[in-house]
Design a binder for these strands. Structure first.
Length: 242
DNA sequence: GCGACAG
DNA sequence: ATCTTGTCGC
């Protein structure tokens, strides 16, 4: 029976098949620089509502080097799959891809909340998304999925390699002093060195680089209403919708 | 066999 | 990821 095939990103897949697919796709990840002129960097993050029933995919596009937000997309959709360590992309990619379809600007670089190749089968969500869209991507994780690393020096900008099975799969980077480091890894079409470089270039006063931080704020509905008593800078203002 | 385990 | 209060520090 020749039924109309649904978009590939609407899969719902068994863990066993998902793992097989990762092993098939991982070898296609490009780990060298293929970035051209970079004028737009996008931050990608996924959040949840209603105890996980609804998925919120957010993409924030910023102009480089001003880092001003030029476009934002918030896409809400029913959650299709549960969270299984190692299979995160199958739970979050569908929503992210649907959000991408609503973007009018095609970013030159993606910064994704999660791992790139610093994954058991070298295909974390950042690598999976970068490969699918064929856009340079960097994995920006807040905690470790696999691998080991030495202590990271306290100085901002210092980093140590994250290794797994005798391979360097990423870097544990100190983006702020006195704060837990970030787990940076190649997503697609960019080297680890340049990945670290770009993350550092997008840092302001926070732990997370701006693209990811802004996407995270919106995905977790932590927008401009967060009050701060006084003193420092005024609460961040959101110019665009939401 | 036991622990670890992105978001 | 999300649920959640107060609390420590610049």
């Amino acid at each position: 029976m020749a039924s109309k095939r649904q978009p590939l990103h609407e899969w719902t897949i068994e863990p066993e098949s998902a793992i097989a697919l990762q092993k098939l796709l991982a070898p296609r990840i490009v780990c060298c620089d293929q970035t051209g002129e970079i004028s737009h960097i996008a931050g990608v993050d996924i959040g949840f509502e209603e105890g996980g029933e609804t998925t919120r995919a957010v993409i924030v596009v910023m102009r480089w080097p001003s880092l001003e937000i030029v476009e934002r997309v918030l896409h809400r959709t029913p959650t299709r799959m549960p969270y299984i360590p190692g299979l995160l992309s199958f739970r979050e990619l569908p929503a992210a891809l649907e959000a991408f379809e609503q973007l009018s600007i095609t970013p030159d670089l993606l910064m994704v909340d999660g791992m790139g190749i610093a994954h058991p089968r070298r295909l974390g969500i950042a690598a999976h998304l970068g490969l699918w869209l064929d856009i340079p991507a960097i994995g920006v994780g807040k905690s470790r999925l696999c691998g080991r690393n030495d202590e990271v020096p306290e100085a901002r900008g210092s980093w140590v390699p994250l290794t797994h099975r005798n391979e360097t799969i990423g870097a544990v980077l100190r983006t702020r002093e006195q704060v837990k480091p970030l787990y940076i890894s190649i997503g697609h079409r960019i080297s680890l060195e340049r990945s670290i470089h770009w993350v550092m270039q997008c840092l302001t006063r926070y732990k997370l680089p701006e693209p990811t931080r802004q996407a995270d704020r919106l995905a977790s509905r932590r927008t401009a209403e967060t009050r701060c008593p006084e003193g420092d800078a005024a609460p961040e203002q959101d110019t665009l919708p939401f």
